[in-house]
């Protein structure tokens, strides 16, 4: 075990742990935000640069500070490393810069975006973005396309985190999903508008940190904070069947995987609990699900406002 200090908190972690994961083990508000890193998907990380931190001392053996800010998601900790995240002014300004860059071409259509309320870019913009934009030019635009019969891609909202590419790479042998063009014109797409034909392709929606990939069975049906998330399970021969169903009254509006506070799909019984497309898109009948109880949602999240039972609920089991 090696010792590392993050924002004056000293923790012991296994060698080879990245700074971000070390911070997550410590918990609290010293955890840097991550838009592209996804611990369950190998090969992600390093791209969005929101997790930049300052390394004030490299290690006990070599206590020199690192000249540049480093991406905490891909930099392994060293013994005696001192990391500054919240306590560094430099990190704050540069992260603000990254957020500004991410918002430069973002349409800011939160009022009509299905991700609003659970969007990481919204949180990040709230914490770091300035209220006004300095970008006077026209934003780049794309038309929404279907990738798969139940998944809609709004490329305008995409921040090119490559998470969905990593999912697609894990799912399929042939590369059908990736990035076309480069620079500002880079876009996520499938090869010549192919559909991804895979039972687990819906997980791309869950890993997307913004509203670029949305569930066509749920699009424009409801705001997420009007729905109540319940932990549920069903017997499924393709996936674990452990999911969260989002209900309004007795109706299931959408089904997602169980996600933790970093927006990552939880590990249940040593397996990442990805859910299959049947569970996600087709099982909208409450009788097919065994409801376990309300899903714990962070008290500060806008979603938690609808979590408590109201008079409209006529299912006594759920009035907890």
């Amino acid at each position: 075990m090696i010792k590392v200090t993050i924002d004056d908190v000293e923790i012991e972690v296994a060698p080879g742990t990245t700074i971000l994961n070390a911070a997550r083990q410590a918990g609290g508000d010293l955890v840097p935000p991550a838009m592209c890193y996804y611990s369950k998907l190998p090969g992600t990380g390093g791209k969005c640069r929101t997790c930049l931190v300052e390394v004030a001392a490299g290690s006990t053996a070599d206590p020199r500070p690192m000249p540049k800010l480093v991406a905490s998601c891909s930099t392994p900790v060293m013994d005696g490393m001192i990391v500054k995240n919240k306590t560094s002014e430099r990190v704050h300004t540069n992260r603000g810069g990254v957020v500004e860059f991410l918002l430069v071409n973002h349409p800011l259509d939160c009022p009509i975006c299905d991700q609003a309320g659970e969007c990481h870019l919204q949180d990040l913009g709230y914490e770091h973005g300035s209220a006004k934009t300095r970008y006077r030019e026209e934003r780049r635009t794309f038309s929404p396309i279907d990738i798969g019969n139940k998944i809609k891609l709004h490329m305008n909202r995409c921040i090119l985190c490559y998470r969905c590419v990593a999912v697609a790479n894990q799912l399929t042998e042939k590369r059908v999903h990736g990035v076309l063009h480069r620079g500002e014109h880079a876009e996520i797409s499938t090869y010549i508008e192919n559909a991804i034909d895979n039972d687990f392709s819906g997980n791309m929606i869950d890993v997307c940190p913004v509203g670029a990939l949305t569930d066509k069975t749920f699009r424009f049906k409801s705001r997420v904070w009007f729905l109540k998330p319940y932990e549920a399970e069903c017997a499924c021969d393709k996936c674990s069947g452990k999911a969260v169903v989002w209900m309004f009254g007795n109706e299931i509006f959408r089904v997602t995987a169980r996600k933790d506070k970093y927006g990552e799909v939880e590990t249940i019984e040593d397996k990442t609990a990805w859910i299959c497309n049947d569970c996600r898109f087709d099982k909208k009948d409450p009788s097919k699900w065994n409801l376990i109880g309300p899903r714990k949602i962070d008290r500060h999240s806008v979603i938690s406002q609808g979590k408590y039972a109201t008079k409209n609920d006529n299912n006594p089991k759920l009035l907890s």
């Binding site: 969005c48 640069r49 929101t50 860059f101 991410l102 090119l160 620079g183 500002e184 880079a186």
Partner: peptide, 9 residues
């Protein structure tokens, strides 16, 4: 290349 946000945007 469009991979990381500061350079791309």
């Amino acid at each position: 290349c469009g991979q990381c946000s500061p350079c791309r945007e």
